[in-house]
Amino acid sequence: MGTMTEATINGLFMGSLYGLIAVGLSLVFGVMKVVNFAHGSLLTICMYAVYYLVMKANWNSYLTPILVVPLLFIFGYVVQSKIINPVLKREFELGGGHAVILLTVGMMLVMENLCLLFFGAYYKVAQVPISSLTLNIGNIVISVPRMIAGIVSVILIFLLYAFLNKTDMGKAIRATGQDREAVRLMGINDFKIYNISFGICFIMLTLAAALMIPMYYVHPSAGKIFELRSFVIVVLGGLGSLNGAFLGGIIIGLIESVTAQFLSATTAEFLIFLVFILVLLLKPNGLLGKK
């Protein structure tokens, strides 16, 4: 019974972390209608940034966002405006085409290989004091970094939701996602909104990276594993829907953690994709997706 509770708690925590990683993907798709295949390698870059700040400058992992978030927001803003936007513009003018998707695949390959080149194919684990901290309630052991990651992820997703719904900027971002042409007529620079959205995607990934570093290894392909999860989560919850990404994350986290207790971890992996296919067949827009 204790193990079941532990598995459920772990599933919830990991699920909300998955959700946090997936919201960026969902946001970029919702606003720009771009499927970003570089999402995983963006996460890898954020993880390396946090890792080196923790290991070389002795920062506390949870404080690193103070420096890394602005830096990577700017990085994301520039990448969008200098690399993605020109291709997007051409696509809008010529109509159709899938050049942007190929561009993101290209970016993924470039970034992964740059990581290999600069950081090597080594596994890097930041062994910080909090990594091995646990909370014991009765016979239930809860890993503290996981708990922090889970709770903070929920708060961050809520904050992003509030930002998108309550602030003018948020409303502009949502409006751009709904109708780019109409937004232009209202005097909003749609490409600037794209830049900001991509920057926000980076912010969410950096925060996720700061939460993950105390408990996870960094490797040039570390983000890839989470990227695959993110795609499943986003499609499951509904493309472009933040609530959907959160719900999808929780569902995947629970399936992964709880079914592995009854069956095996291999079966859990299979179940995740089975659920994914079923949702696609029965509810093609995802659980919370709009028609």
Binding site: T3, E6, A7, R146, F226, A260, A265
Partner: peptide, 12 residues
């Protein structure tokens, strides 16, 4: 796997 905690819990 992105998370091996489920396996670790099973061992426990």
């Amino acid at each position: 796997s992105s998370d091996l905690t489920p396996v670790i819990l099973k061992i426990k």
